[in-house]
Design a protein around this nucleic acid. Structure first.
Lengths: 232, 232
DNA sequence: AAGGCAGTTTGCGCAAGCGCAAACAAAGGG
DNA sequence: CCCTTTGTTTGCGCTTGCGCAAACTGCCTT
């Protein structure tokens, strides 16, 4: 049964394609569900497919030989991921894990060349995604080189809230489960330090947080923390 | 006067192109010299061209609003750089400075689309370059998150030596001038810490170093330091 | 040859943030 | 409903590596 084009209409990855083109691209895709905590693909495994997240949130994780983990990024709805093929890579450089139940479109790598040449807009969009990620990652290096832990953690929480925030009565909440450990692995810190800082912020009325849950009640104040301009 | 194809023969960016194709690509390029410490392009400036380094070494630097600097990477001979256009960016995200006297080919961005579609191999190679840089940068994030300063600095020096090493009687020397400050800006550290560690390594007979010069005399030992497996 | 500049070395003190350990709390399964 | 599991909080001590300051050393300019 063919996938309906309404699934992806309005997604940047399909911007500029006609309805027929969208159908053509979708005709080579298949859709699948990934329950929370299941792996979409695994680090170092041979890349056979590329993906588009239809709904949910995916965590991209790099593991070191020593067994430590670093969270490379979270994928949001509508984003391409696992596009190793577009970069000429034969293996996935990281693992992708569903942070919540997810619905994912996938294409076999074999169709990439064809899609890319028949629908230049689709290819260009993928390259733009990669370019944006390179920039993000470079900025993260700059941040890790120049800012201290509290500013980095505040910055990471701010970004999560901006990209995946959900309004509640109390403020803006990160709309997937996230642990102190996760935040530590995003910022090059430890769960202890994250916990301490978040407790401090809670005392100051900047955030409210619970088990696997973070709500920012005063985004402006958190921004000041991230920029190291908090009024002492 | 047209550029000779021998300038670029054997470069990965031109792999798989026929002699005539190479000439066609070169016909839209121009070559220029950049003396040491001159800027090829500047952060946030509108991207009008993309570049290929024919000879020399280029330092790519990101500056923070606070005026701190981070060295994003060094470009080696034969590499493309400043290819913002391939990522759909309109401004350069960093500055590029000649680390020594350099010779550079440049193309106006306007020819990118055309080159890319007429010579898919050229485009694919650019995308592969970007992919490789994304991976490098991700690895750097992992390194900064999980290793301590001594290991990071050892790793950075090892990489410099592997990519831009020149054999001498004493060992392998980084073949462009580099300061302690530069190494600090590559590793998220300070020139003081770099200096201290390099002095210690010199006492152990692992490196020899002087003003803007680093020679690794015992690469194996330095590798052990980078991996935190030095025999105490 | 003298002087100045840019890069380097080193000492000393301190603070950020980590590691370890222990207690606590919330969810979920049998 | 109890018990286990998983996540969180917090105290305490300590190490890493930074900040500041001062001295030193080539090298380049005049």
């Amino acid at each position: 049964m063919p996938l309906d084009r309404s699934l992806v209409s309005g997604l940047p990855a399909f911007a500029g394609l006609s309805g027929e083109d969208v159908d053509a691209v979708l005709s080579t895709a298949r859709s699948s569900r990934f329950p929370k905590d299941s792996e979409v693909f695994s680090q170092d495994e041979e890349a056979r497919q590329f993906f588009l997240l239809l709904s949910g949130h995916v965590r991209v994780v790099k593991a070191t030989p020593e067994g430590e983990q670093v969270i490379a990024r979270y994928i949001n709805e509508g984003e391409l991921f696992g596009i190793a093929v577009a970069m000429g890579r034969t293996a996935y450089p990281a693992s992708a894990v569903a942070a919540v139940d997810c619905v994912v479109l996938s294409w076999p790598n074999s169709v990439w060349q064809d899609l890319q040449s028949r629908f230049p807009g689709f290819g260009a969009n993928a390259y733009q995604t990669i370019g944006a990620r390179l920039q993000d990652t470079q900025s993260r290096v700059v941040e890790m080189s120049t800012r201290q832990v509290e500013q980095r953690i505040a910055g990471a929480v701010m970004r999560l809230v901006q990209q995946s925030g959900r309004k509640t009565e109390e403020g803006v909440e990160i709309d997937f489960p996230i642990t102190r450990q996760d935040i530590a692995e995003m910022t090059g810190s430890t769960l202890h330090t994250v916990s301490r800082l978040m407790s401090a912020w809670e005392d100051e009325g900047i955030v409210r947080s619970g088990r696997q849950k973070v709500t920012v009640t005063d985004p402006h104040a958190l921004m000041l923390v991230a920029e190291n301009r908090r009024k002492k």
